[in-house]
């Protein structure tokens, strides 16, 4: 009986399970080691468009993205976590995630990046989709390896089709529903744009 009461106490306390909706790794120690096995340490920085440049930056990000932020949850003050990974004093790379609205729920698109901003891997920490298995497969993820902001800069996400220029033209969309596929591409592009501003300090103009 006593146990039950304690459990109910736990039920009352559950709000703590739901943290503020930014995008950070659930288990950063494990995840960092998984993507950078030789890493010795990492730092965590909290960024937001609000903090880094306000309305002006939002306009810039939306311009680079090719469409305005949408929905109730894609906002100027959403916190983003940038993990910077080191082996002793050598910079190994970055991990950074964004929330992207998918067809059936939020998709958390984490990019594992080299110090130069090239994609090493993609990690969907949260993914509700009928094609979850496909998106998590090596087959889907590996063509993105080596791509960077530059490769996505000319890609029009609102067209909802693949561009006809390499390297993105080489990607294959799943045969049936492509909604989540294009959502993921949008998430990747948004992630890369934000990293340009948060970390690399580069804008479209001076690329």
């Amino acid at each position: 009986m006593k146990k039950i009461i304690w459990l109910l106490v736990g039920l009352l306390a559950t709000p703590s399970i739901w943290a503020a909706v930014g995008c950070d790794l659930n288990e950063p120690d494990r995840d960092v080691k998984r993507f950078f096995p030789t890493s010795s340490r990492y730092t965590t920085a909290y960024e937001s468009i609000q903090k880094s440049g306000g309305e002006k930056l939002l306009a810039q990000v939306e311009h680079e993205l090719g469409e305005a932020f949408s929905g109730l949850y894609e906002k100027i003050d959403v916190p983003y976590t940038v993990y910077t990974i080191y082996q002793k004093d050598n910079l190994l790379g970055y991990i950074h995630g964004v929330n992207q609205k998918g067809k059936y729920g939020a998709i958390q698109v984490f990019l594992v990046l080299t110090p130069q901003g090239k994609i090493l891997d993609i990690y969907f920490q949260k993914l509700t989709s009928k094609q979850s298995k496909f998106f998590r497969s090596d087959k889907f993820r590996s063509p993105f390896t080596g791509l960077s902001y530059k490769d996505f800069a000319g890609y029009d996400i609102s067209a909802k089709k693949l561009p006809d220029f390499p390297p993105l033209s080489a990607l294959t969309a799943p045969p049936e529903d492509t909604t989540d596929f294009y959502s993921i591409l949008r998430g990747i592009k948004k992630n890369l744009i934000l990293m340009q501003h948060f970390v690399f300090g580069v804008t479209e103009e001076n690329l």
Binding site: W18, V21, Y73, N99, G105, A106
Partner: peptide, 22 residues
Amino acid sequence: EAAELEEREAGDLMLLPNTEQE
């Protein structure tokens, strides 16, 4: 907060885990 986490608004679709039903 569940809506925030799932980025869902009224009218959006959801999938329950291990089901195909919308």
